[in-house]
């Protein structure tokens, strides 16, 4: 029995007009349908006769010559387009050399990548350090600006400290803001303190017998200068004098020596 659907597809397939899906569908059906398979063969034979509707045309003689030249010299398979060329023999040492060269280039590339990565890491570290320094400088700048504002404040009082026998040329200037009970002190021409010791500023109060430690500071070995800020000063009328001694690192509660480096009366 001929199936109408496959009759149509077989006719289309014979003239090359069936779609890929139709051709696949037909092929699957023909495997199990002898009648349709015979019909499909008949359609193909019919289609193969279609060229007979044309008037035959003799090709130019050159075509025949070309074809016969191509096949005439040999009984071996031939091709017009891509003549066979034997694959050239390549010495295995060339492969080894090529492999070594590849490995060397690959290794060189890897080294280059690592060096570049290290450079990037180093540059990032430098950038981070510079950024940190920038922040510190900005903080310093803000601090300096604040100090200058304090120094310029109308109620700021100044106290001068003079060098003593341990540092005759040394001096210091104290800018005191009684309203805020704060002071900024600048030290000049001080001998650098040993690494295991630091200078300590003492406040000698009118109401107390023993000096009161106000803080420690280190002197820069190159500039011989230093500075410090004091918070929570005693009330200015209680400050009789100020003095500096060299004490163990970190400071002590009472002076360990009467060897003063700086001293000055508050004059308040």
């Amino acid at each position: 029995m001929i199936h109408e659907t496959f009759d149509e597809i077989a006719a289309l397939e014979a003239v090359g007009a069936a779609t890929a899906d139709e051709s696949r569908f037909l092929a699957e059906h023909l495997e199990g349908c002898n009648d349709c398979a015979a019909l499909a063969r008949a359609y193909r034979e019919t289609a193969a006769r279609l060229p007979l509707m044309l008037d035959p045309v003799s090709p130019p003689p050159g075509v025949r010559r070309s074809i016969m030249d191509a096949v005439g010299a040999s009984v071996q398979p031939v091709t017009l387009e891509i003549p066979y060329r034997p694959r050239p023999f390549i010495d295995p040492r060339w492969y080894a050399t090529a492999a070594l060269l590849f490995l060397a280039l690959w290794g060189w590339r890897e080294v280059g990548i690592r060096v570049e990565r290290e450079q990037v890491r180093a540059e990032r570290a430098v950038a981070a350090r510079l950024e940190e320094e920038r922040h510190l400088l900005a903080a310093d700048n803000r601090r300096m600006m604040a100090q200058m504002q304090e120094l310029a404040a109308p109620g700021t009082r100044t106290i001068a400290l003079a060098g003593q026998k341990m540092a005759p040329s040394a001096s210091a200037r104290i800018f005191m803001d009684p309203a805020r009970r704060r002071a900024i002190i600048f030290f000049y021409d001080m001998p650098p303190n040993p690494s295991n010791r630091s200078y300590e500023l003492w406040i000698i109060r009118a109401d107390k017998k023993a000096p009161e430690g106000a803080g420690t500071f280190d002197v820069d070995p190159e500039s011989h200068r230093s500075s410090m800020t004091i918070e929570r000063l005693p009330v200015d009328t209680e400050i009789k004098a100020l003095a500096v001694t060299l004490e163990p690192k970190g400071g002590v509660t009472t002076p360990t020596s009467s060897d003063y480096y700086l001293m000055g009366e508050a004059g308040l």
């Binding site: 044309l54 035959p56 045309v57």
Partner: peptide
């Protein structure tokens, strides 16, 4: 070739 080339050539020309 002599037998079939003309019809095949006609086919290709078409």
């Amino acid at each position: 070739y002599d037998r079939h080339a003309p019809i095949l050539y006609a086919l290709l020309l078409r």
